[in-house]
C-alpha cells in the first residue's frame, strides 16, 4: 500500500539513539505521516477525492490556511458522492492527538478502537501529520523487539 517504512528511520532522522542502548520511544509525532494530503472546507469533494487517490492515499485532513485541523475525510467520506463540498462530507472536529503521545499507547488504542487513522496536531491545533494504524503498530512492534534484544545484552 504505502512504500514507506516507519520506525527506525524516523528515530534516526529525529536524532535519537538507535544502537547500543534502548532507543528513545518513538512518539506519535515521529510516526505520523507528514505527507498526508490536505484540503479546504470549500473544495469540491470529488476533486479532493481524485487528488487524494492519485497521491495513493485514502484519507485527507481538512485544514484552514494556518493548517489548523477542521475535519477529516476517511475512505467512507471521500466516497460520499458527487456535487458535495468537503465541508458537507467531512467528519468535523475529529479527536486529535499530541505529537508526544508514546507510539505504543496510540497503537494499542487504535487497534482496540479499530481506528484507521488519527490526526496529530500541535497544542494550537495545527496539523503535524496523520498517524496510520498499521504504521503505529509497526513502530510499536519494532520498539518491542528492540527492547527484547536490549535485554539480552
Amino acid at each position: 500500500m504505502y512504500d514507506y517504512v516507519a520506525g527506525k528511520q524516523d528515530w534516526v532522522s529525529a536524532g535519537l539513539p538507535t544502537e547500543g542502548q534502548l532507543p528513545s520511544r518513538p512518539r506519535a509525532g515521529d510516526v505520523a505521516r507528514k505527507d498526508v494530503p490536505t484540503c479546504r472546507v470549500n473544495e469540491a469533494l470529488d476533486e479532493v477525492a481524485e487528488r487524494v487517490r492519485a497521491a495513493g492515499w485514502d484519507a485527507s485532513v481538512v485544514v484552514n490556511e494556518e493548517r489548523v485541523v477542521f475535519g477529516l475525510l476517511r475512505a467512507a467520506e471521500l466516497a460520499a458522492g458527487r456535487g458535495r463540498s468537503v465541508e458537507e462530507a467531512m467528519r468535523p472536529g475529529p479527536s486529535t492527538f499530541r505529537p508526544n503521545v508514546p507510539i505504543e499507547e496510540m497503537a494499542g488504542f487504535m487497534g482496540e478502537h479499530q481506528l484507521h487513522s488519527a490526526p496529530v496536531t500541535t497544542s494550537d491545533g495545527r496539523l503535524v501529520g496523520l498517524l496510520l494504524r498499521e504504521e503505529a503498530e509497526r513502530a510499536a512492534h519494532e520498539l518491542h523487539h528492540a527492547a527484547t534484544e536490549g535485554d539480552e545484552r
Binding site: N64, V68, V69, F70, G71, P92, G93, P94, S95, T96, F97, R98, N100, V101, P102, E105, M106, F109, T121, S123, G125
Partner: peptide, 16 residues
Amino acid sequence: CRAAIGESMDPVHAHG
C-alpha cells in the same frame, strides 16, 4: 482517554 495516553490529547476545537 487523556489519562490513558499520558495527558497529551488535544481537546477538540474545530469551530473557530
